[in-house]
Design a protein around this nucleic acid. Structure first.
Lengths: 341, 341
DNA sequence: GTAATATATCGAAACGGTTCGATATATAAA
DNA sequence: TTTATATATCGAACCGTTTCGATATATTAC
């Protein structure tokens, strides 16, 4: 078992002081080119790597970024936020950071389980994904640590969001182009800004097209947006209703899939009788039959962006609030029966 | 901005030495009950929490566990290993650890991108998920750091695996019970022990039932096990073959789904013409039509077990090699058309 | 009653880096 | 030439813990 080398070993071997080694390690200050090369080659020779905790202690920087998810988002089967997490992980590596993932309850008080990485000063910045209680935002804000939200909004806080309005517009336009007039919507948890925007834009686009959405076409009463919520919402709309829509825009793919299930069970043909489109472009939409038309969201990219922004914030220490919107595209498959020629 | 307290503040306030505080912090040595209570209450009052990096430096323990995944497992759309990761994350918290996730190339040399957490001594143990090059196993072995494999095997290395044999047996017995004789298998990447075991047991069980599997019934030539591999394997079996199987056991759900797609496209009815079962019980199996009969694998639990074991290994420092097998159950849904009455 | 052991507390030395002046020399500006 | 500035290197302090004796007292064993 070869013992591990320290910066002292490097210094001794180079005949220079610790500080000089540290300077080249961090690319700071002034070091002559000759010595820099010498040190670098000794570092390579010894396979020396500075120890994270020692660095952390001295510099008061952990080299970690915290990723916070609420428990319900975490347990939701659909890996929407998981993909965002994977995006952060990938990007973090480029910046020599690690991501520490943790889940929390809706609100601070509720559980009093504060993420350990916040207490132990083990992260330099924090990314929060999805809807979260404002108490958490306040709590972290008071920690004076850089943080931002992904797929959520709060006043005076930087965030990365989805271009929900464009997405909703693309879907509704797609239906209109297919000749649909009675276009419905199913959704839930309108307090989530993404869902709310999708619903709001659905209404505006219809109105702009001269169509007033009937209350019998849409349902946004579900408290959540899972596939079983989609099933329930579909039931409410299609069960004994004399003014049924011919197309359904679901707030997300999970709901769309639940909705499809209800329709199929009740003898509706998709897309012949009812056209359906979702939002998010999750994997399952490919395996469902017919394959789901949806709006693609760049989840990994959102994670990347979040990390890049956090890294900036850690460096700059300034307080500029940025709001970044990521683009979306319509993904036309078979569940609407509308060609794109 | 309230400044953060250190162990010194606690000591001062308690009128005791640093060492005594440290002792109660770590539940070590002897501290009188009176002082212990006093210290504890001061800690609570100040909301003091020891700083991770300082601890790490002094104790030479990082409080982190590394989770290594090969790049191809990572990019595979099916979140099989992701779920294992989430299981580790959840369990780690109970033990006051964090998980550092990273992906690596198949082999050490290939990329020469060694996970930073190994170089910087930033993990106390390592979990490796899925198939990985033996060069990696050797490399980490030489680091003299506790590690184990999940869903993979290597000589003299602890691991957590799936009871693939029982799973395969359950599926084949299920087919036999349904009256099938010509039972096929599709798979790929036989060098992965899980796949290999499933295939081997499929053969043994058939033989034990007095059936010799025909080469026209199975295909294990795919290099991978994605849904498109399943599609291709199905094509090879069902495209102009005068001795077609009536049931297909797919090495995993992804392949089963690809196989279903091929069959549906080519006019086979499931399960009427061909019965299909998979393995893994991934989410997508619920959304496919008919819903996929499969074998449930406790992925989160495997992650939990892995963390518990690693924590033990870090504590014990002994070298006992353990091999843990996690159970599976048959999940009967609609793709085999066999009732369980 | 004395020796051995358990309990309680502390000072000081790690742990392995970063960073702030101090010092010295080379270069540019006046 | 003198002064200011850029370049180069170093020593020492510091980051916030843990842990190893040392010391002192209380308890138990014989």
């Amino acid at each position: 078992m070869k013992k591990k080398f320290t910066i002292r070993d490097v210094a001794k071997k180079a005949g220079l002081s610790l500080s000089t080694i540290s300077l080249v390690l961090n690319n700071k200050g002034y070091v002559s080119d000759a010595n820099k090369q010498k040190i670098l080659s000794i570092i390579k020779e010894l396979d020396y790597h500075p120890q994270r905790s020692a660095r952390g202690l001295a510099s008061q920087l952990s080299g970690n970024i915290g990723f916070i998810l609420t428990e319900d988002h975490f347990s939701q089967s659909e890996p929407f936020y998981t993909r965002i997490f994977l995006g952060t992980e990938f990007e973090a590596r480029k910046h020599n950071y690690y991501i520490l993932l943790t889940t929390v309850g809706k609100n601070v008080k509720e559980t009093y389980e504060i993420p350990r990485f916040l207490l132990e000063h083990n992260v330099d910045g924090v990314i929060i994904a999805g809807k979260i209680g404002s108490s958490w935002i306040e709590y972290i804000s008071n920690k004076h640590i850089p943080f931002l939200l992904v797929d959520y909004v709060a006043p005076k806080v930087s965030n990365i969001t989805i271009d929900n309005r464009t997405g909703a517009e693309l879907v509704v336009q797609h239906f209109l182009r297919g000749g649909h007039k009675k276009i419905g919507f199913i959704g839930g948890d309108l307090r989530h800004p993404s869902i709310h925007e999708r619903f709001a834009q659905y209404q505006s686009v219809l109105l702009a097209a001269g169509i007033t959405p009937s209350e019998q076409w849409y349902n946004v009463d579900q408290s959540n947006t899972t596939s079983s919520d989609g099933y329930e919402a579909a039931k409410k709309i299609f069960n004994s209703n004399d003014n049924k829509p011919t197309a359904i825009f679901a707030a997300n793919d999970a709901m769309a899939i639940g909705c499809m299930q209800y329709l199929k069970e009740n003898g509706f043909r998709i897309p012949k009788d009812i056209a359906i489109a979702g939002f998010d472009n999750i994997e399952a939409g490919l395996h469902v039959e017919p394959r789901l038309t949806t709006v693609n969201v760049h989840r990994e990219e959102m994670g990347s962006l979040a990390v890049r922004r956090i890294v900036e914030m850690v460096k700059e220490k300034n307080g500029v609030v940025t709001k970044t919107i990521t683009p979306v595209e319509l993904v036309v498959r078979d569940s609407c029966g509308i060609r794109m020629d």
